[in-house]
Design a binder for these strands. Structure first.
Ligand SMILES: [Mn+2]
Ligand SMILES: [Mn+2]
Ligand SMILES: [Zn+2]
Ligand SMILES: [Zn+2]
Lengths: 149, 149
DNA sequence: AATGCAATTGCAAATCGTTTGCAATTAGAG
DNA sequence: CTCTAATTGCAAACGATTTGCAATTGCATT
């Protein structure tokens, strides 16, 4: 076995399938995406890429992100304020909690909320094509008020 | 009686209270916001303003929107794709359903979803400071599949 | 392995929404 | 009416992203 990573999508295969050339810059960017545990923006991806191959340009990062987004291989998130941030599209659907102090992104999922969204849209006569649920918050200060654990 | 509008916030009062000058451009912009039933962007507000007073500049619109946002008089929404869109802050909290075909914005509110968001954040050890819930959809095509009403 | 050409690249310049410096204007306190 | 600080319009700057273009490269073909 020689897949790029365990439980990570095989981007190169996905690309070839779409008739897209596997170039040096793309290889680098794809590997970065594959083992990104976070939600990096284009500039961050570019920095990590330069570390591997100094010849890569920011334009190519942008172009590649757009390409990957179009073929559905990654998701683009436009969180408040900053630039777009990306993540592999492999995982199940989830929404995000953004730590407004650190910028950290925490993933969560609520089947109940998803249902309610559908219900609301239906009542309004709409079909949901996509949605965006983002919670912006800060770590609760360690000061349990009630009988907290 | 001579309030600007029924059930609409009195912006001028709110501004004076903050020690801000009531200028001609501001008066115009404020009146536009007061009776905007939609969620206009800066350029749209600018166009409506020019119709009333041709001397107004787009910069002033932007500056005024920022000012109003800072004192909490309006809310800024960065819906997918387009520029920021604004609305008076008077109403109760609500979220938005955006018609991806027309750009129309429909407001809705779900107490249940709001609760669930709180619950999720709490479990993750966070306090929600603000959130964003946007549904992007299209009008359901009038073709009831099942025993629908 | 060498050829050929379309796909892809890096770079610089362009784009879009928004912000900002600055000199001219104006609100509004005295 | 005076005075000054706040506000304005304008043009130039901005940050993120996209694009035109000539040079390079992947890769299907000999
Ligand atoms: Mn995620
Ligand atoms: Mn609204
Ligand atoms: Zn969701
Ligand atoms: Zn809400």
């Amino acid at each position: 076995m020689n897949e790029p990573h365990p439980t990570r999508p095989d981007y190169e295969a996905e690309l070839r399938k779409t008739g897209v050339r596997i170039t040096r810059p793309r290889k680098v960017i794809l590997s970065i995406l594959s083992d990104a545990g976070d939600h990096p923006d284009a500039l961050e991806i570019f920095k990590r890429a330069v570390e591997i191959d100094s010849g890569i340009s920011l334009s190519t990062v942008y172009r590649t992100m757009k390409l990957l987004e179009e073929i559905g291989a990654i998701h683009r998130h436009a969180f408040e304020g900053g630039p777009s941030r990306f993540e592999p599209a492999g995982e199940e659907h989830h929404d995000h909690l953004i730590d407004i102090e650190t910028g950290d992104v925490i993933e969560f999922h609520s089947a109940r909320i998803e249902e309610l969204q559908e219900e609301i849209a239906r009542e309004l006569g709409y079909d949901i094509v996509r949605h965006r649920l983002e919670l912006y918050g800060r770590k609760r200060r360690a000061g349990r008020s009630a009988r907290g654990g």
